[in-house]
Design a binder for these strands. Structure first.
Lengths: 339, 339
DNA sequence: TTGTACGCGTTATCAC
DNA sequence: GTGATAACGCGTACAA
């Protein structure tokens, strides 16, 4: 087993000093051609690669990005990670992924672990528990230490940092409008409690659309689940208790499941019931019938987040200007709506 | 902005030496109660946390695990990541995720980046290009350097290291048997070229099951796609060209799409056509009809991989004994098969 | 042209 | 009980 070779090893072997080796490998003008060639050949032979850790310690730059997200099984987050990876890798950064699993405590622990020198900055989306508690001290501490943070999707106004979101209100509005255009009047909404920033915004869009079309809002047609977790029973009961000719859901799982319940009731999709969800994932594409959705452009969000973060990381100046990028959602029309 | 505080800062402030501070914070017996209390109070006040990078350099241990996988959007890999995260986090390790995106070059680059001190070990699943090229020098180099590697799912016998797989052959066998039991005789198989280790094994199981039941193998009923990428047209053409009463697919996407094609042809599922896929993901659960699958237990695989890796990382002795853990697949029966 | 010395933050050993 | 020193691996300002 040939363990990693260091500058020191090369120096000893070639009977020169460490700094000579270091300079030779950097092709410094100071060093004679002879020595340079000798050193470089030796280094190549033994496959010398500088130790990242030592360089990190020296430069106070790790070239690592910490990503803290609530969940990795939801399609949206995986696409965001992919976007982050893509951009970060191209810039020579690695991505450390930590899952909060919607838990406040895990979010805090993960951040503390990473904040002690492991990463140059954070990209994160808040756990539902954090949004429910409305406690952002862990974020405050990190930003006060001068570690750049980019929040995406599930954000808060309590923290001054860069942010990337889609216009969820517009998403809710577009979807609801689409349903109304198809002649639907009794549009159900399956969402979560309002503490989740995205659900709140989507619900607002839904209300706005109804209002604009002079359709009376019927609160009984709104089901608020405690989290994004699937709860088949409550959804079934909900549909048993109301009249509806369309359903808007804040994710694709709720939507696909709603389609199943509707089909089981003998309803035709989209004639009797039209359905729209959020997140343009595999589920929507391959569901039967395929599902019309509000696309959130996760990969794009990831790329932009990474770009904003790396810019902050690499800019020396300590500017305190933060921006919020708002992406526009788009409607991907499939067979769960007419046309 | 209060930047991170170091031992040196504390020492200067309290007018003691750095080593005294270090010992005091470790509650060393050598230090007087007085000093210890003073130092500890000060450290707590300024929220001192040791710098991970410095500790890594000293200990030659990063407490980071590198995970290199082909893809993150496939449900199977996300569940594996979750399993790895779970176990690794509990042990105080962070997870650095790199995507090869099925590319040999990216796999090599990612590994090289991480191998220079960033991680204590690798958990990986080979990219399809790597398996196609059959070139594992990047893995050899890493293992020769003494960096532990655990391969999961897509593995190779060319490399001596710990491995975790499910018995894909048995999975293919179980699924095919199930279809045969339901009276199916013309069982189509949608898979990929044989260089993908898992596809090959699943195909072998399929053949074995047919053989055991004295059903003649008809090669025209086997579609081999070049990769795990969806190719709607080829699948459609395939179904147009053969007679079939059942379909086995090596992933859930192929399977769900096959169901759609069958439905479009006016066939009833599972009466006219029964369908089974691999991977017990959201897609299978929420498809209409819901899909019977061979579950791969990704989360379990992730946990076991992490466990094996960390054990190797933390064991001083340089044992050259490697094991291969083989998990048993299980059939999750849903509505795409009878009963 | 080459080498010495120092610093990044921490810990461990040894001397006082 | 406390502190100086060396070491982890690297880079660089400065000295020779």
């Amino acid at each position: 087993m040939k363990s990693k070779i260091t500058l020191k090893d090369i120096a000893r072997e070639l009977e020169v000093s460490i700094s000579t080796v270091s300079k030779a490998l950097k092709n410094s003008e100071e060093i004679s051609r002879d020595t340079k060639e000798k050193v470089q050949a030796f280094a190549r032979l033994y496959n010398y690669k500088p130790n990242n850790i030592a360089i990190s310690l020296k430069n106070k730059r790790t070239k690592n990005i910490g990503v803290v997200i609530p969940d990795i099984v939801h399609h949206f987050f995986t696409t965001v990670i992919r976007g982050i990876e893509k951009y970060a890798n191209a810039k020579g950064y690695n991505v450390i992924v930590c899952l909060s699993e919607e838990s406040f405590d895990k979010e805090v622990i993960n951040m503390e672990m990473l904040a002690n020198g492991s990463i140059d900055g954070f990209i994160m989306s808040l756990s539902s528990e954090t949004q429910a508690k409305n406690d952002y001290n862990h974020l405050k501490e990190v930003t006060e230490q001068g570690i750049p943070v980019v929040l995406f999707d599930r954000i808060t106004n309590e923290i001054d940092c860069d942010k990337v979101i889609i216009d969820d209100r517009m998403g809710g509005y577009l979807a609801t409008k689409k349903l109304i255009e198809q002649g639907k009047q009794k549009i159900a909404l399956i969402t979560t409690d309002d503490y989740l920033s995205v659900s709140k915004a989507r619900g607002d869009g839904y209300r706005k659309a109804l209002l604009d079309s002079n359709i009376e809002l019927d609160e009984s047609r709104i089901l608020k689940l405690p989290t994004m977790e699937m709860d088949e029973e409550r959804i079934r009961n909900f549909f048993d208790s109301i009249e509806f000719d369309a359903v808007l859901c804040v994710n694709e799982i709720f939507a696909v499941f709603s389609m199943r319940v509707a089909l089981e009731k003998g309803l035709k999709i989209p004639k009797d019931v039209a359905v729209i969800g959020f997140t343009n994932g595999l589920l929507s594409k391959y569901a039967n019938p395929s599902l019309t959705v509000v696309a959130q452009h996760g990969e794009k969000m990831g790329e932009i987040s990474a770009q904003m973060l790396i810019e902050k990381v690499e800019s020396e100046k300590e500017e305190e200007t933060f921006q919020t990028k708002i992406l526009e959602p788009t409607l991907v029309v499939r067979d769960s709506t007419i046309n």
